[in-house]
Design a protein around this nucleic acid. Structure first.
Lengths: 262, 262
DNA sequence: AATCCTATTTCCAAATAATGGAACTAAGTT
DNA sequence: AACTTAGTTCCATTATTTGGAAATAGGATT
């Protein structure tokens, strides 16, 4: 279900194809791409060749498959440095991670999803799949809900419209109504929890990172497992979490970090 | 000094502009880009608009500046997963890092440079700037030299021609002749060292990761500082380093990891 | 408040590049 | 040898890109 972009000419089409390859997530053959592609054979073929030339894709001769190129990894590092909260938040996250000894995530909202932009592991990490660059759902993660709770109605409804409300676990929120109720509670409390809503056994406490004008610029969370913590014991991190979020927000202001989100 | 790609039409031009923004490394204004761009005003303008539309760039209204977009961070995560050695090498690197308690880097050659694709920090990290996605010079890093040493002459001369031979420290190798001498020594020993050649005080021991056919697919290093280790004490890691590299090479074979490099 | 900058954005006819149906090639199958 | 399937190339038509120039916006200066 690739997003359709209107009217960006050839560049748009090429990036469309690139996205398709990214979404498939594993090396793909031409014919396989052709089946789901909205472009005719010759066009798709040429777009792939161009992307290959540009090192945005790489091609495996033996298997005749295309996959994303390393050039993207390089570019993304630059993007991460100049466009994410991570470099600004780095020292604060290090400190928080040291203090609490648990997994810490830094996230931003991107196109209605949670984009993790940094992560700190404790010395003995719990098994969990997340990394910088990974995206996750907003409606059933701690950071996602924390950020949504502090959006203005306009931005919020845009974000909500993009939620899939897939029931990952028995505890996943699966309707807009439930979600909005939860969000207003979060806004009151200033903090959100993930009570095994996305992954079984995984719980977290999160807070939004707000700019000086009160606009959402990111989210911060401390994650653990029910084998180690209860929601109640996670709640003890609340002061440190809020303090760190505040410091990051202030620092971001000093760096003129932009506030818009979608 | 952006790489010129000829003949990829509009897509090539757009990616060229994207690269330019990436290389500048900080938010840029239109006029600033225009000065160094090979495209006329209106063309550059439209290319930027297209990239904005596609979320490859983001625009700061107040400052009127362009920077790389978060979409790149998302795509790169996918690229990292499907095109780098990192996912394959992950368990082996974790284990090595645990055993030696030092910083471990996993790198690949990309366009004549060292591209770091993964990194493990010890519990008490030394101060050092490197991350997944970061690139570094090949001629003066442990992993760079280890990988170069095992290239065939054809690939090697291509890579050497791309080296800048900038003198980072008093110990940096600054000529092709010196480098080739060093590389043949490395090939004999099966291991390379970085003796403060890139950053003062930073030393490392590295080995190449070879495919079953003996072709270079990556490099692995254990890094430390002269405050903690001598070159001699780093050398004690040699067996573990070689063992890990071998295991990763074998695993990569099982996964059909491609062997080409430039 | 009028004028002059300078930076950014829009316009449009000419130039160029992209398109895609169809034909072709290569590699495997019956 | 005939047939299938997958990938690549061709080329006249069509659509997009191009870029000089003009318009606009936002300061700064008088």
């Amino acid at each position: 279900m690739a997003a359709e972009k209107r009217g960006d000419g050839t560049v748009g089409k090429a990036l469309d194809v690139l996205n398709e390859v990214a979404e498939i997530g594993s090396p793909v053959r031409f014919s396989s791409l052709l089946k789901t592609s909205k472009y005719p054979k010759a066009t798709l073929y040429r777009l792939l060749q161009t992307l290959l030339n540009q090192n945005m894709l790489s091609y495996n001769d033996e298997e005749q498959t295309y996959k994303l190129g390393l050039k993207l990894v390089r570019m993304a590092h630059a993007a991460w440095l100049q466009s994410s909260l991570a470099p600004i938040a780095l020292p604060f996250i290090d400190k928080l991670s040291d203090k609490v000894g648990e997994t810490v995530h830094l996230a931003q909202l991107d196109n209605g999803q949670v984009l993790y932009v940094d992560k700190r592991n404790p010395s003995s990490p719990i098994e969990m799949y997340s990394q910088a660059g990974k995206v996750g759902p907003a409606y059933c993660t701690g950071v996602g809900k924390a950020m949504m709770a502090f959006l203005d109605e306009d931005a919020l409804s845009r974000v909500i419209s993009k939620q899939a409300f897939f029931k990952y676990t028995d505890f996943t929120i699966t309707s807009e109504k439930e979600l909005r109720k939860e969000l207003s509670l979060i806004k009151k409390q200033g903090i959100s929890f993930d009570k095994q809503e996305h992954e079984a056994k995984i719980i977290c406490i999160s807070s939004p990172i707000l700019s000086s004008k009160g606009r959402v610029i990111g989210g911060l969370s401390i994650t653990s497992s029910i084998d180690i913590h209860s929601i109640e014991s996670l709640e003890e991190f609340k002061p440190q979490l809020l303090e760190t979020s505040k410091l990051i927000g202030k620092e971001a202001g000093a760096w003129n970090f932009p506030e818009q989100n979608n």
